[in-house]
């Protein structure tokens, strides 16, 4: 399997990365090389084997549904590039 040019720009879009044409070309080559390396997993017979998503047998962890202190909006917003009146500001999404 290999990543074709069309897919590189699709992947960049899905990854939310604006790439230059040079970056796209380089990444295309790198990804193909890395995927060849990744495909070593196909050497292993996994017929009937269940996947492991988590290394340890930890089940759902529940807690009491009670009110606990949480950060106030001020410190939560302090690292934001743009905020006003306790909200994050983003570029306009819905046109007038």
């Amino acid at each position: 399997m290999s990543v074709v040019d069309q897919e590189i720009s699709d992947l960049a879009r899905l990854s939310r990365l604006n790439l230059t044409p040079e970056e796209e070309e380089e990444l295309g080559e790198d990804l193909n090389e890395i995927l060849e390396f990744a495909e070593k997993i196909n050497e292993v017979d996994t017929e009937g084997i269940e996947p492991t998503y988590h290394a340890l047998p930890v089940n759902n962890v529940f807690r009491e549904d009670e009110v606990r202190p949480s950060p106030s909006p001020k410190p939560a917003l302090e690292n934001s590039a743009d905020s006003v009146d306790g909200y994050f500001v983003v570029p306009r999404v819905i046109e007038e």
Partner: peptide, 15 residues
């Protein structure tokens, strides 16, 4: 960027 792209690829539908 390389790893985000690779991760996006291996999670994308069809792959």
């Amino acid at each position: 960027k390389r790893r985000i792209m690779l991760g996006t690829f291996v999670l994308s539908s069809g792959y």
